[in-house]
């Protein structure tokens, strides 16, 4: 078996409540190995620490104990800004900037080091990426403000896909979707996963959706992760 793309070893986490004090543990010595190109599904009731777990994987938080490695490198030694482009996180509440869908998709290239060349390449990619999340190219000119919550969720997923991350972290991606759209999303994830060999870590409290994803299932309970 190849080296895991993400490796969580003995990770504990407590939120800080002041400069020198920490709250109750959210994660207790959690372990998980994520193989490249797989779909990992983490289920658990709300408040179990699922979102926190994802936040640790792209360094929005740092573990209070233990180590997380991305491609063998300790996250504590990774540049968080570069890491977050490789390990993308799509939050539960989609946030789109004011403007068109096009502007949102181009947002990650705003300060692109590659300059115009990179931006041009990104522009040619927009329609394909929209298609991959089940939206058509006609969306590009629409105002982000006028989109439904479900569409916003898709656009924010598309925006994260624009930078072609190696790992995609999805936090409760079904929170605003009806059952039909949930199935559509499950198929979308499966398609991107198989075509781009992108690794997915999906967090959900819906067991049905978790099973529809056809990935490796884990449960987060009392701060511990166990395979299902």
């Amino acid at each position: 078996m190849s080296r895991p793309i993400l490796e969580v070893k003995g990770v504990s986490f407590r939120y800080r409540i002041s400069r020198h004090e920490y709250g109750e543990p959210v994660l207790k010595r959690a372990n998980l190995e994520i193989t490249r190109g797989t779909i990992q599904v983490l289920v658990g009731s709300s408040g179990a620490g699922k979102s926190t777990f994802l936040r640790l994987l792209n360094r929005l938080e740092d573990p209070t104990e233990g180590v997380i490695r991305f491609e063998g490198v300790d996250l504590a030694k990774c540049d968080p800004l570069r890491l977050r482009r490789e390990v993308a996180l799509v939050a539960q509440e989609p946030y789109l900037v004011d403007g068109t869908v096009r502007e949102n998709l181009m947002l990650p290239f705003e300060d692109a080091v590659g300059g115009d060349g990179l931006r041009k390449k990104a522009e040619t990619k927009m329609e394909t990426v929209l298609h991959s999340v089940g939206l058509d190219g006609g969306m590009l000119a629409r105002a982000a403000r006028g989109l439904s919550v479900g569409e916003k969720q898709r656009v924010s997923l598309a925006r994260a896909l624009m930078t072609a991350p190696k790992v995609m972290l999805l936090d409760e991606p079904t929170s605003a979707l009806d059952p039909d759209n949930r199935n559509l999303l499950a198929r979308t994830i499966a398609r991107i996963n198989s075509s781009d060999a992108m690794t997915f870590v999906v967090v959900t409290h819906l067991e049905d959706f978790a099973r529809a994803l056809d990935g490796r299932l884990f449960r987060l309970r009392d701060g511990e992760i166990a395979a299902l």
């Binding site: 929005l60 977050r84 482009r85 946030y95 900037v97 947002l107 930078t163």
Partner: peptide, 12 residues
């Protein structure tokens, strides 16, 4: 939500 989204997209 806005600040975290931008952080997640790799902005400082």
């Amino acid at each position: 939500a806005e600040v975290e989204t931008l952080l997640c997209l790799g902005f400082g």
